[in-house]
Design a protein around this nucleic acid. Structure first.
Lengths: 357, 357
DNA sequence: TTGTAGGCGTTATCAT
DNA sequence: ATGATAACGCCTACAA
């Protein structure tokens, strides 16, 4: 390291961790540029208050010794780190990585960094000290609340940290939120299936019953059918898990006995369930889409990779992440802004698995 | 939590704004517990230096007013934030989310948080100020360097921040690194294909030629064939992209003309390429695995979802993330520790797409 | 066992 | 236009 000024304090303990961190301080810059630290600070934060000549000299020194302000000291005064927290139920799958991707792009475009946090991790370690929404380093936090029984739900309403909730509309409780139009996409999918298949032979195979998306999609499915004059039987709506196994198991129990009476339509709670249904149907010799029409949800990459290609309701996850960041930054900049709930549109993508002749 | 309006109780006459803003400080705790701030600090950091009675009283106050130390102030002194940076080429797909998942689990188990950073984002905003490896808030950084032409490569060797490199072995340049055993997995896959298919009819369809994994897998593929006495023709190794389109395009150009002379074997650079090959083969009426045997790489969830199920070389991405964090924390704790390179094992998972009769 | 006081690197409020 | 200087909240020798 070519940075000077290592001949510093001997007072504070000198662990390995601390030792190598001897970076140039505002003081070093001031000395080298023969100005006061106040002037250096002005050059960085309010250049218009400094004479051009002085500013140039200081800038040169800054570049020269590679000075960068210490974010801890800055944060101590400004109470801001330009770091946003994002708490997700769990980090995996195309789904969440898309969300993260959108959030990260938006955040970095606004000069923020992203601190990711998964909910369910081992309780061990010093996790409890830093964990949760209380982590004092972040300027705000986006929390995904997908389940009813979510401990973060309470925390999100109680923390004084700027907060935005994903997947749940808590705007009536004074929290900004971003959701997707589950009802709209579901309705579109239901109508698509309805045209070509009798309403009595349409099924919704959902994810966990406690999952908000699951609930909303199921409800919208029933509503759409009723709107078309179908009196929905309870067997037409099922809940399970977001896995191909559940889809296959549902299909095994329900598809064969139905398929005899003409084509059947299935709207799945997500693409994985849909794939399970699709493959179980194929295994039973049922033709897709002639005998079984299938529509997935989320439109992950899986949908267009599988054969037959899977119709699916597209959910703009990257935009959910981006919108969350946007809302969060807005509230950080103005804590008294009006509570907002952004609802992102969904849209049906029709592919082979549900095509009509 | 931690800072809520519940904090102050006695005669609160303050405004909402003030109440929400004012987090309890060590001073408040000291006053309420009738001790000095030094004692409060000791209770939190060196409990053994405080009498049991005093400690209990202080602890109660801490719980009572919900005190949490200000991480900025702590960081200013300790020069540590317990935040780790992780810089990836791009955030998407099962691949990276698995990596993140493993890293996050390991980090939070050790009391660290994860700051994710994607490389290629818009240059706009104040990104340059915070961006790159220089972000002064983090205690260390894990950088994935998958390409030869990577600007982070230089940065990783020059920064004074504790650093670990993923996907590239830079231990000779004094940087800890974690890599996967591309050669081992490739060799295993090649031998598997070799048993049942003639070496002259085996192909490697790789990803980008600049990609390190791609290069290593290609090299190991050739080596394995040569070891078995095959003199490898140049057409047997091809580079393209990590997409199904590339796989399909390669298959279209090469498979038909080869398939006439008996079964062909393909090792793909990743699962997506493999799926492209697989589907192109099916489209041409070639039977898998009877006429074309296919093995993918990475063993993402795609592999077991597709039909026929895809054989694939499993790459433990979650463990890569975990190992990276482990190495990073080790170096933060002891900056003079010996440079290390962790090589994680890979293993072939045989499924239907390459099964032998 | 506990308290006092100095300093970490900034920003911001005064003067000059 | 520039320079002192007081916070910011915490940790830690050093005293008592």
């Amino acid at each position: 390291m070519a940075r000077g000024g290592t001949a510093k304090k001997a007072g504070v303990k000198s662990t390995d961790a601390a030792a190598a961190r001897a970076a140039a301080s505002i003081h070093d810059v001031a000395t080298a540029a023969r100005v006061s630290i106040a002037t250096v600070s002005r050059v960085m934060n309010s250049p218009h208050l400094v004479s051009a000549k002085t500013a140039a000299r200081v800038q040169e020194v800054i570049r020269d010794i590679g000075y960068a302000p210490n974010p801890f000291a800055q944060g101590l005064i400004t109470r801001s780190s330009r770091v946003l927290g994002i708490a997700l139920p769990d980090i995996h799958g195309e789904f969440y990585s898309e969300l993260l991707r959108g959030a990260d792009a938006e955040a970095s475009g606004r000069g923020y960094h992203l601190l990711v946090t998964s909910e369910n991790k081992g309780r061990g370690g010093k996790g409890s000290r830093n964990g949760g929404l209380g982590f004092g380093l972040i300027d705000g936090v986006a929390v995904m609340i997908a389940d009813a029984d979510n401990s973060l739900s309470r925390a999100a309403r109680e923390t004084s940290l700027p907060t935005v909730v994903l997947d749940s509309d808590l705007h009536e409780r004074g929290v900004d939120s971003v959701v997707v139009d589950n009802a709209g996409g579901t309705r579109e999918a239901a109508r698509h299936l309805l045209s070509g298949t009798r309403g009595e032979r349409l099924f919704f195979v959902g994810g966990p019953p406690v999952n908000f998306d699951s609930q909303q999609r199921a409800a919208a499915f029933q509503a759409a059918l009723r709107e078309s004059g179908v009196s929905v039987r309870s067997e037409q709506v099922a809940f399970g898990e977001y896995t191909p196994e559940w889809g296959a198991s549902w299909a095994g129990a329900n598809l064969s006995k139905e398929a005899g009476g003409g084509p059947v339509g299935v709207l799945a709670g997500n693409d994985e369930i849909a794939i399970g249904v699709l493959q179980a149907a194929a295994d039973r010799g049922l033709r897709v889409p002639e005998q079984v029409r299938i529509v997935g949800f989320d439109d992950t990459r899986l949908a267009s990779l599988i054969r037959p290609r899977l119709s699916s309701v597209r959910v703009p996850m990257a935009e959910v992440g981006a919108a969350a960041v946007r809302l969060l930054v807005r509230r950080i900049d103005d804590r008294s802004a009006g509570i907002e709930c952004v609802r992102l549109p969904t849209s049906l993508v029709v592919r082979e698995s549900s095509a009509t002749a």
